[in-house]
């Protein structure tokens, strides 16, 4: 069986249309944080009080669903791509196998939630950035990019969706997101623990992995999708990140990176909206 599977070869049926993160970020449009929409609401946070809340939640739920598929594919590759004992400890692979089991269950839950919310599978575009972070040839990089950055984003997203379900009174959404959130905290904790253990005597390798995580965190901030600002739909979930093994300074660093991404997006949007010189 082939090792180190490229993102371009992910198998999907005809319902799905994939784009890279570069293609997605090339879309210069705003998502309501400008002009008349910005004036009409004081926050962009994804809550039921937003006029577009239902469609925005459906879109995010679809993103979660394809993200779970890619997380399953990524964890599965990590079980197989590396030589046991030499490149990756057996216990690490066992954790990745357990994560595959969780992700497969999350895919099924996300499919059912999408149907419940009135979304057809493949209705929205699939961004392949999540699996792209799982293509490194170093298992430590994958732990940093996938378990800590990707699953860290999942903690933020699930916390936001869980609160959305609670406020709207949607019993299924709130319940399912809460259970998946518990799994994600475990996945991040596994990544944090393994990253520290494997790089215990290799500070350079740890430094590179954490730098990679910063890059991926910025990508996953999607130009302001997630931060501690009200302008971002998804709130950085500090408490659950602490439970997952992030230190205060690490969380603050992610908050800073996310805010920088939001500011970059805001400036780009202002340039787009600026009147052309006559």
């Amino acid at each position: 069986m082939r090792k180190f599977f490229p993102v371009s070869d992910l198998a999907r049926d005809e319902r799905f249309n994939q784009v890279t993160n570069e293609e997605r970020m090339a879309d210069p449009r705003g998502s309501g944080n400008t002009g008349v929409i910005r004036k009409a609401r004081s926050t962009n946070r994804l809550t039921p009080s937003r006029p577009d809340a239902t469609d925005a939640a459906r879109n995010l739920m679809h993103g979660i669903m394809v993200g779970e598929i890619q997380a399953l594919e990524g964890a599965g590759r990590t079980c197989f791509d590396f030589v046991t004992g030499e490149e990756a400890p057996f216990a690490l692979k066992l954790d990745m196998a357990r994560q595959c089991w969780d992700e497969a269950r999350h895919v099924e839950i996300s499919v059912k939630l999408s149907e419940w919310m009135g979304t057809e599978l493949g209705q929205f575009v699939e961004n392949t950035v999540l699996f792209a972070a799982a293509c490194s040839q170093d298992p430590v990089m994958r732990l940093a990019g996938v378990n800590r950055a990707l699953e860290g984003l999942a903690i933020d997203v699930f916390t936001t969706m869980k609160e959305f379900g609670e406020i709207a009174g949607d019993p299924y959404l709130a319940f399912c997101e809460d259970w998946m959130l518990a799994d994600e905290v475990t996945h991040v904790k596994m990544g944090s623990d393994w990253l520290r253990k494997i790089t215990e005597n290799d500070p350079e390798r740890r430094k590179k992995a954490l730098e990679f995580q910063t890059v991926v965190d910025k990508l996953f901030s999607y130009g302001g999708l997630r931060s501690e600002s009200d302008e971002s739909p998804i709130l950085l979930a500090r408490r659950f990140r602490e439970l997952a093994g992030f230190t205060d300074s690490e969380i603050t660093e992610i908050a800073d990176v996310s805010l920088a991404a939001l500011n970059e997006r805001r400036e780009a949007l202002e340039r787009t909206l600026a009147p052309s010189p006559a």
Binding site: T54, G118, A168
Partner: peptide, 16 residues
């Protein structure tokens, strides 16, 4: 039209 989309929107605004 996907009816469930509109049903979900209605539930979000009126209760489940």
């Amino acid at each position: 039209v996907h009816k469930q989309r509109w049903h979900y929107n209605f539930r979000n605004r009126h209760g489940f």
